[in-house]
Nucleic acid binder design. Structure first.
Lengths: 110, 110
DNA sequence: CCTTTATGTAACTTGATGGTTATAGATAAC
DNA sequence: GTTATCTATAACCATCAAGTTACATAAAGG
């Protein structure tokens, strides 16, 4: 994954509205109106966020009638995870213990 | 991990200079002069980047004589990885296969 | 076609970001 | 205490980012 792409992906993830959009899209594809309803900002603002996410490769979009459905794309998330994982030796996590790390992180969240 | 903290961490990671600083610090602690020598920008610019990394919790700093050593802190990296890992089910990776995913990502990099 | 619905685009405001140069501050050495 | 070294801060500039409102565009349906 190129540095340019990492700039775009981490930059896209640096905004909480965009992270919330991704979380929503992880459940189901959604159109712009659906997403706008989730926040207290205007529709053009959401369209801008979607553009950022699309340029980062984090979502794809296709027309469905008059609507455009946004669809979460996993590849950049995987790549970003891979980049972070390069530091796993530094933080003392072995490969085969990452699974348990993730489980515990998940538990702490609820 | 709070949304505020995720803003700071992903925001810090969104800059390639800061990512390079982290990569350098993963090998060994370094002072401001060391880090400045790695790039084509001024020392104050590096100091600014270090401040951003520190506020994100990604590094800590302590004085050593007239120098200040920067030290990589793993926790936020771990947390960010955990956040991304919440999407692993979406991209179809089971917990116990993440280790192999990371290995393959690593192989592709070289 | 004309209208409605859904979305994109343009123009603008405001504040943050990333860099610069010049200068101030902290510590060690003499 | 003066000096040298290392780092931080201040002031400034240019650009980008995130939001707004107003308007343009695309597709579907009477």
């Amino acid at each position: 994954m190129s540095e340019d792409q990492l700039d775009l992906v981490f930059g896209a993830l640096a905004d909480r509205t965009r992270r919330a959009i991704l979380a929503r899209l992880a459940q189901e594809d959604a159109n712009v109106g659906d997403l706008t309803a989730l926040f207290t900002m205007s529709q053009p603002a959401i369209s801008k966020h979607l553009k950022v996410l699309e340029q980062a490769g984090l979502i794809s979009r296709n027309r469905q009638g008059t609507m455009r459905l946004s669809h979460l794309e996993a590849e950049p998330l995987r790549d970003a995870t891979g980049w972070l994982a390069d530091y796993r030796t530094y933080w003392g996590e072995s490969y085969d213990r990452l699974d348990r790390l993730f489980e515990s992180l998940n538990d702490n969240k609820e």
